[in-house]
Design a protein around this nucleic acid. Structure first.
Lengths: 346, 346
DNA sequence: CTGTTAGCGCCTTCAT
DNA sequence: ATGAAGGCGCTAACAG
């Protein structure tokens, strides 16, 4: 391991001068600088990150805590974050929470032990303890009330728009399948859905057939975990009394819904219209294409990265934590009867 | 920041004793240990990773270099790696190469600057410089000749088995769509395909129609980048002279192929049989289900993690670098005419 | 068994 | 503009 003192010796200067020449902090004569740089080059000198971290009390590393590293819903943001951090000279340390509060606490602690300079995380337990002085931003979900700044998708507006489009296509008997209400995403998506449904004057019915209101005008909400399995169970559970249109509020749920359609022999959109949330590439390849609300995952990642970097380098933002809701886009394809363009555009 | 000397003072012992009590290295009287632990607990002491790294000359961090953090083909392994490392008390630092040799060099360098204790990477440039003393293992792809140990999927056997199944179903006019031959994965997959085709006595034809051999018995290979777009272009390019069966040797390629089938109005498997590689969940939800060779991505991740950890803690393995080829599984579904069980099993 | 001490490699005053 | 020196928090070696 070649260290700074080696460089200094070869350049014939003191370590202080070598340090200043390489970091650019402090004045160094052009001649000294040239020789130090040449020496560093020749020796293949690379500063020791641990020593620098110890001395400067910052690691130039940012932690990213995700529920699941395989789900493209999170990694689509993570890719942008990685790239932004890299551009700024920061490294990305990844932790996985699996949506489990215990695992989340563990992951947070190891991040702190690593002395990351900042943290971007998709929160699981709204009450996780974070040091007040750690620059942090929540991604995708947010605790309520807000404790740190958060960057989320404007699902209320997006799902509202999506639902309105479905209703506008002539559907009045709807089912929404949604994940656990602990997550702000579930609440926001549901709020958007309900707002649109209410605006159309469609009453919400209980799951029991007995409560069925005026034929053909009703809305049902089915709540469970954010899994493919729950999407499957939700649809099969109401197969005997199926709606005109079903809105699955995550791509995982949609996966299960489509599988159920296959098993039940339901044709889309002839027998049932479906719409989703998120936009993995296969949504557009599917025939017919899946109509969906696509959150701006890349934008979200970018804003989150920008905000942590700002907080790290300029200190905490003035005032209360901010909640940024980024608009996404509704993509109309063929899976909703009466809505799609003919050969399902990409 | 509470430091070790604070704990020691509160416990009424020297820092050495405190250090030993907490790390467990070296003998400490039960009484001292108790008091140190209690003091640490009370103060909420957490060791400083940078200081420890500086002193111990190891960071307990392992780098993972992936071409693309969104592609589940890589993250499926990454998830297991993350979990295994975490269990062993190591942290995961992620770098992204985008299959670009320049980006790869950059990523390798920042990993080294971070002084990661080991490196797991999907190699891009077979000639990347790695310090000889850095425990490293290649994942999924391997340089040839082998410079460090590698854990890959046995694509030769897997694609061979897949191809034989397709042929066994009665297809004799085949096309394989494959990615860039720089990657060992491309070469292995192609080798498996060609072996099966040759075993069946099917001749390989050039892409030009003129070279078309005895009607209905031929194999064509189309080479391009590992992208959805290339899958699309490959199929549309031969739409006028289409084969009975097409094998797309990555899930990205399959995505493009399916899109092309949609645009061309080709029904699967009535008009064309298709088979793929990899097994994202939507392969099994698709109707008909996609027949595919599924590499054991989780196993690969596990073996890779185990090998780096071993190399880190026990030093380099004796002898030459090892190449581990892990078997995957062919999954038969309905996308190959004459092969699938009736209602496409999961 | 325990306290003291010497660095790990770097940056940053402080004199010069 | 520069060299010398102190110290970031920790562990390992040493002397008791």
């Amino acid at each position: 391991m070649v260290k700074l003192s080696d460089v200094a010796r070869l350049a014939g200067v003191g370590v202080g001068t070598a340090s200043r020449a390489i970091s650019g902090n402090g004045a160094v004569s052009p001649e000294s600088r040239r020789r130090v740089l040449a020496a560093a080059e020749e020796l293949g000198y690379r500063p020791n990150a641990a020593a620098r971290a110890l001395r400067e009390r910052r690691t130039r590393a940012v932690g990213l805590l995700l529920p699941d590293i395989v789900n493209e819903f999170y990694t689509a943001s993570a890719a942008v974050i990685q790239s932004d951090l890299d551009d700024a000279g920061y490294q990305l340390v990844v932790g996985v929470t699996g949506n489990d509060p215990r695992a989340e606490r563990h992951a947070v602690r190891t991040m702190l032990d690593r002395q990351v300079d900042g943290l971007i995380h998709v929160p699981v337990d709204p009450h996780v303890e974070l040091p007040a002085d750690l620059p942090a931003v929540q991604l995708n979900r947010h605790s309520d009330p807000l404790r740190v700044s958060a960057v989320v998708s404007d699902d209320v507006a997006g799902v509202g728009e999506l639902t309105s489009a479905v209703i506008g296509a002539g559907h009045t008997d709807l089912v929404a399948v949604i994940g656990a209400p602990e997550f702000s995403t579930s609440r926001d998506r549901l709020a958007g859905y309900r707002r649109a449904v209410a605006a159309a004057g469609i009453p919400e019915a209980g799951a029991a057939p007995a409560e069925r209101p005026a034929a053909g005008r009703r809305s049902r909400v089915l709540t469970g975990p954010f899994t493919s399995q729950w999407g499957y169970d939700a649809l099969t559970g109401i197969a005997g009394d199926r709606p005109q249109a079903l809105i699955a509020l995550s791509s995982r749920l949609m996966m299960g819904v489509l599988r159920a359609c296959g098993d039940l022999g339901l044709r889309i959109p002839e027998d049932i219209s479906v719409a989703g949330l998120g936009d993995p590439e296969w949504f557009s390849v599917w025939r017919p294409g899946i109509t969906t609300f696509a959150p701006a995952l890349a934008d979200m990642g970018h804003h989150a990265a920008t905000e942590v970097l700002r907080a790290i380098e300029e200190g905490p933002a003035a005032g209360a934590p901010r909640l940024e809701r980024l608009p996404g886009r509704v993509r109309v394809r063929g899976s909703v009867q009466g809505l799609g363009a003919a050969p399902a555009p990409v």
